[in-house]
């Protein structure tokens, strides 16, 4: 069974949910899927389907990078840490000094994206700084 067949449900859902710039290609036995989902819910759903086909993502045959289209400047983002506060840093990098904290589940505002990983945000207290995007989920 080819990888495209194995992950057919995932690819079909990505297409039908309106993922833009959807790219699916197979390289050296790994299926690379990338695109921009119209909402954070679609992204979550795609990851759930991926986890259903490949329990705990342990096969290592997919690399999936789904961004969320609503993560644009001015968008509200939810802090999705496990439970702790999110460090807000002076610059984009963990070597940068912490200038503030955003609480778990707090809403912050996206000011701009320095890179896919580091986003400049403003907390509800008005502090501005860089935070890692893996802990920020766009809110519809």
């Amino acid at each position: 069974m080819s990888l495209q067949d194995k992950y057919k449900e995932l690819i079909d859902t990505a297409k039908s949910a309106g993922t833009s710039n959807l790219q699916v290609n197979e390289q050296e036995g790994v299926l690379h899927i990338s695109g921009e989902a119209p909402s954070g819910a679609v992204k979550d759903n795609l990851w759930n389907i991926y986890g259903k086909i490949d329990p705990n993502f342990l096969s290592g045959d997919v690399v999936m990078d789904i961004k969320v289209a609503t993560a644009v400047e001015g968008a509200k983002l939810e802090v999705v840490t496990q439970s702790s506060n999110l460090n807000v840093r002076k610059g984009p990098g963990i070597d940068q000094p912490v200038v503030g904290k955003a609480a778990h589940a707090e809403m912050v505002t996206l000011i701009s994206k320095h890179s896919d990983q580091w986003w400049l945000i403003r907390t509800k207290d008005g502090e501005e700084g860089y935070a890692h995007s893996q802990y920020l989920r766009p809110v519809e």
């Binding site: 390289q27 050296e28 036995g29 790994v30 690379h32 990338s34 990851w47 986890g51 705990n56 993502f57 342990l58 290592g60 690399v63 999936m64 990078d65 961004k67 496990q82 896919d116 990983q117 890692h132 995007s133 893996q134």
Partner: peptide, 17 residues
Amino acid sequence: KTLKQALDALHPKKVDA
């Protein structure tokens, strides 16, 4: 799951877990 999402976003050739 959080880690896998973050690692995939770096566009590696593969994530071997």
